[in-house]
Simulated scan of single mutants.
Amino acid sequence: MKQPLGVILAGGQARRMGGGDKGLLRLGGQTILSRVIDRLEPQVAGLALNANGDPARFSEYAMPVLPDSVTGFAGPLAGVLAGLDWAAEQGAETVVTAAADTPFFPCDLVPCLQLAAEGMAHPLVLSATPDPERGTVRHPTFGIWPVALRDDLRAALEGGLRKVVLWTDAHDGRVAQFPVGEIDPFFNVNTPEDLERAEALLKRKA
Rank of each mutant, 00 (worst) to 15 (best):
V147P: 03
E182R: 14
A116Y: 07
A200T: 14
D169T: 01
A45S: 15
E193H: 11
V95G: 11
V110D: 01
A48G: 08
V165W: 15
P67V: 02
V70A: 00
S34V: 03
V36M: 04
P42Q: 02
E93H: 11
S69D: 14
A116V: 02
A10M: 10
A14F: 11
E196G: 14
L161E: 14
M1W: 11
I183A: 11
E118C: 04
L202F: 08
R138F: 06
S34K: 09
L115I: 08
H139G: 08
R26H: 13
E41L: 10
R174L: 12
A87Y: 04
A45P: 08
P132E: 07
A121M: 12
A87Q: 07
G181L: 06
R174N: 06
V175T: 15
A128M: 00
R134E: 14
W167D: 09
D131T: 02
G79E: 00
R174S: 03
I8K: 01
P123F: 06
V65K: 03
A121N: 13
L126I: 02
L77F: 10
D108Y: 10
A48S: 06
P185D: 11
L24F: 12
G29I: 09
Q177A: 01
L27R: 00
V164D: 11
T97V: 01
A156P: 01
L24S: 11
A45L: 04
G19P: 12
I183W: 05
A100D: 15
V70R: 04
D108E: 10
P64G: 04
W167Q: 02
E182N: 13
A116Q: 08
F104Q: 02
E196A: 15
R204P: 09
G119H: 11
D68N: 14
P140W: 12
P76C: 07
F58C: 05
G53L: 00
A117Y: 05
K163V: 15
Q177I: 07
E41A: 13
I8D: 02
A78M: 05
G23E: 04
F186T: 00
G72M: 00
L126C: 07
D184H: 02
I37L: 06
V125N: 04
V36I: 03
D152M: 08
R134N: 12
R16M: 10
